[in-house]
Write a protein that binds this DNA or RNA. Structure first.
Lengths: 147, 147
DNA sequence: TTGCTCCTCACGTCACGTGAGGTGGC
DNA sequence: TTGCTCCTCACGTCACGTGAGGTGGC
């Protein structure tokens, strides 16, 4: 991605291992447009990935797994993240006005807040499940003590 | 189930609506043995369910959704829950010895504790995700203030 | 009797898994 | 050159969705 963090390119198997899926999953995500095609790759040639790609994929898989998102929902979030990434370049450009900078930051803020809402909702549901399970446990323990 | 809580039997569409799935899902669960077949039903006849069935299904779907279980994993848990249900009958029988009662309760305790472990693990993961999102939010807010 | 819901196939879909047969790079 | 990983089809599977055509019960 950025020239400063340039590292050796990774192959699909290594990426898959690092994020905990199979190569097939990564190819499928590319197929449905969830992951970019990496641009210039002649037919039959190996796909290559950066460390940044690994991190983005890991984050995406975590959102999917923890929040129970479909690939379509995940795709929507990823697209907004990518748009935000593009805006970062504009943000750092010298000629960008403070008003525009504020706008960019506020869009990023809205994105993060939507994700936070989803995470909180999920955590609340799990906390409720946990409370009910804890109740069951207490009830069983009480009956054990009464024996 | 128990004669004391006997209520009007429900049809599959009503059950589906109450637990938030389609009738097809319920039929599929029956097909793969996740739900009991209800016993005596002549070919082409309507399936019927009790309020207890609804509650058990709702609990199962919640475990599946919140903990991210496959139907195979869910089936394993359901089977243990059913076994526990059977033991409840033995538990309340007068001739059951205290030692046996203790055994039954301890099995129930183990089951609940396994589920609690799963729930806690999930909640920890979500809490971590939330913390990272909160960090991102704080960073964006700081930059907004610096404008 | 009229609607509405139910029934059983059975094919479609989503998100991959799993080979089959072949090519690429340390 | 030898392995190992990669490639592209392409069919299989899991967990249902979605009709098609027909029967059941308030």
């Amino acid at each position: 991605m950025s020239a400063a963090t340039e590292t050796a390119p990774l192959r699909i198997g290594e990426v898959a291992k690092r994020v905990g899926v199979t190569p097939r999953t990564i190819r499928y995500y590319e197929e449905i447009g969830l992951l970019p095609e990496g641009g210039e790759r002649e037919a039959g040639r190996h796909r290559t990935y950066s460390e940044g790609d690994v991190e983005r994929l890991r984050d995406a898989l975590r959102l999917k797994g923890l929040l129970g998102l479909s690939l379509d929902e995940l795709k929507a979030i990823m697209e907004r993240e990518e748009a935000r990434e593009a805006l970062r370049a504009e943000f750092t450009a010298d000629e960008t006005s403070p008003a525009r900078r504020r706008e960019i930051l506020e869009q990023g803020l809205a994105l993060v807040e939507r994700q936070l809402e989803l995470a909180r909702g999920r955590r609340d549901e799990i906390a409720e499940l946990e409370a009910e399970l804890a109740d069951r446990r207490r009830s069983i323990r009480r009956r054990l003590n009464e024996l």
